[in-house]
Design a protein around this nucleic acid. Structure first.
Lengths: 249, 249
DNA sequence: CAAATTTGTCTATTGATATATACAACCATA
DNA sequence: TATGGTTGTATATATCAATAGACAAATTTG
């Protein structure tokens, strides 16, 4: 997509005094360029990047330092700066969306970790989504899903506690919602609805997903239903946007 | 979703020295709070917000100034600060995704504006997506879609010029891809695939979508096919993420 | 009208960002 | 081993971001 740079001319032109520091804007640009295949395995020299973005070399260095911290780049004195991690994961969303299945072939290890759980009174939206009486008791799970040891998404999920009591233990053991539900008699389930939005990551998501401050998350809010069409799960999942893209087929 | 603040304690705690200025982080928080229904029609006084976010009143004022610029807030001396625009538009994505249909009932006027068009050699990805020989001539349309006069999305679309020569004129006249395609004999079409990601808006998208610097865009890359399943359109659309959420059913 | 509440403006100070310039350290290779 | 290319470090300066305190201007309320 998008137009190519012409000659030695500068990039889209970084914006100044708009609340985002230049080094962060440049870090985002570099991350983007890596994702799109340009900068396949190593970066151009710092002076070249500085010219391209129209900024001082030190500013580029700040950007590179941030991406090093983030685990995207590795700078070696005298040699150059190299790309450690490159491609985004494609996470398919559809009627039969499942985390582990979705990333099959893109990552070897795929598992979920239970951070926290609680039984509590549902708020209005949750009760509506699960088709329960307002204020009914629901089980809330706070989870992180990892691919090859790297956290890719952070979810908050609600279940009818009357039907799914003890789900948290099955999830903790298996690291999979699909398997945990199977243990409680749900052999199959389907996604009814997904809302997708994007925002800056909250402080807690930053730490759970090990992101650099200012990172973006893709947010999916969805309802899963059983074979009879009865809602069983209402969730919000935050994906690290620099690591994942969603695909709808 | 998510936990509530307790008493007078400060918010998620703004992060410092991470490339995002405090006033911008706070502006994002306020925008979020408006979207989630808190701050329904007016903001708490600046001193209260300053205490809540744990910053100086002037910093809050910078955030409010940015949101005023953006058209979200309106501050009135002596009275308070009021919300001008609140709800997000829900943009449905599915087999029969169409811009105007999707926003029916959410906005009165919905139309597309042609910014630019060109006939050029396709790059590899475009040729593959449209199932053309590499380097074939394609028609590129640069468009902005508006709802009630406000730009909500910015698209770059490619068509096989051999089949859709003159499409740009039909689009300019009608403001609709669906109608333009109909004029050229495509009575119906379907979406085959959609990829969704998120990133910071580019400088040009910022201006086309009238966004504040640092804003986020939701990006959809997709292929539309005709009734026989032949690809006809390959596009990338950038949605203003503070205005739109995508829904998948 | 007076008081309280709220946004708007001003001045001063501190720390983070960004620029400019110079040079050191390290690496590849001719 | 000498040279050129590259990252790392240092110093100085200017601008932006954030804090602090005080007061003006407009509006609402008693």
């Amino acid at each position: 997509m998008s137009s190519q740079k012409s000659g030695t001319a500068a990039e889209p032109a970084m914006e100044r005094r708009n609340g985002i520091s230049l080094w962060r804007q440049i870090a985002d640009q570099i991350r983007l360029a890596i994702g799109s295949g340009e900068f396949a395995d190593r970066l151009p020299p710092e002076v070249v990047l500085a010219a391209r973005f129209g900024v001082n070399r030190h500013t580029v260095r700040s950007a590179i330092a941030a991406l090093e911290q983030e685990g995207v780049l590795r700078a070696e004195q005298g040699r150059g700066t190299f790309v450690k991690r490159k491609q985004k994961l494609a996470y398919p969303i559809g009627v039969r969306t499942r985390f582990s299945e979705g990333l099959r072939g893109q990552a070897r290890d795929r598992r979920g970790v239970l951070l926290d759980h609680a039984v509590e009174a549902s708020d209005q939206r949750t009760a509506e989504a699960l088709n329960l009486a307002a204020g009914s008791q629901v089980l809330r799970l706070e989870t992180v899903s990892e691919a090859d040891g790297r956290p890719v998404s952070r979810a908050t999920s609600f279940f009818d506690v009357a039907r799914f009591s003890g789900l948290e233990n099955h999830y903790r053991d298996s690291g999979s919602i699909t398997i945990a539900l199977k243990s409680l008699g749900i052999l199959d389930y389907f996604r009814r609805m997904t809302l997708i939005s994007a925002r800056h990551a909250s402080a807690s998501d930053l730490s759970d997903l090990r992101l650099s401050p200012g990172a973006i998350v893709l947010v999916t809010v969805y309802v899963n239903v059983d074979a009879e069409g009865v809602p069983i799960q209402y969730s919000e999942t935050r994906f690290a946007a620099d690591l994942v893209e969603l695909s709808v087929n």
